[in-house]
């Protein structure tokens, strides 16, 4: 099995798309960490929403949270 990320149609993604997906996953995970200051948590959530939109627009990810 390859670890190479794919888009919603199962196709391999390019380098920038892979980076966007990784960034999105990391920001989303960090935003849900315990004990963050409100200023950090809320701004990370805002960033995660924006990254989710970019990933959705490219057909890389599609989820609600």
């Amino acid at each position: 099995m390859s670890d190479q990320p794919t888009d919603l149609l199962g196709r391999p993604v390019n380098a920038e798309e892979a980076e966007l997906l990784e960034l999105y996953g990391r920001i989303k995970a960090l935003a849900s960490a315990e004990g963050l200051a409100p200023c950090v948590e809320k701004n990370l959530h805002f960033a995660a929403c924006a990254l989710a939109q970019a990933a959705t627009d490219l057909g890389l990810a599609f989820e609600h949270f």
Binding site: D57, F62, E63
Partner: peptide, 27 residues
């Protein structure tokens, strides 16, 4: 604004819609 999908082949658009439909119904 989104050249990847605004100009995508119709077959790709339809495949994307089906995948999103399935996930939307599950949600």
């Amino acid at each position: 604004w989104n050249p990847k999908w605004e100009c995508a082949p119709k077959s790709d658009l339809r495949a994307l819609q089906l995948e999103k439909l399935r996930r939307s119904v599950a949600w």
